[in-house]
């Protein structure tokens, strides 16, 4: 029984780690992408960099993802 609770907590913990990280990243990505679209509409050459900026914010979600994997497989 104790093992089951432990497993449950691990899964919830992993969910919280990736969930909140992705939420924050999503909000940030919205702002970055909106600014990027603005930049591209004024200067088309900015397309590549704008895409990179929009994905820049995703790093936080990746951290959440790494933590989730560590919780599930390593701890």
């Amino acid at each position: 029984m104790a093992t089951d609770i432990g497993l449950g907590l691990k899964i919830v913990g992993a969910g919280i780690a990736i969930g909140f990280a992705a939420l924050g990243s999503g909000i940030g990505q919205g702002t970055a992408a909106a600014a990027g679209i603005g930049a591209v509409s004024e200067k088309e050459e900015m397309m590549g960099k704008s895409l990179a900026f929009a994905t820049l914010v995703e790093t936080q979600a990746i951290y959440g993802f790494v933590i989730a994997i560590l919780i599930l497989f390593v701890i």
């Binding site: 995703e58 790093t59 990746i62 951290y63 993802f65 790494v66 994997i69």
Partner: peptide
Amino acid sequence: FGSSLSYARLLA
């Protein structure tokens, strides 16, 4: 450190 971890997206 962040740059190295960023490659975790390959797996993600």
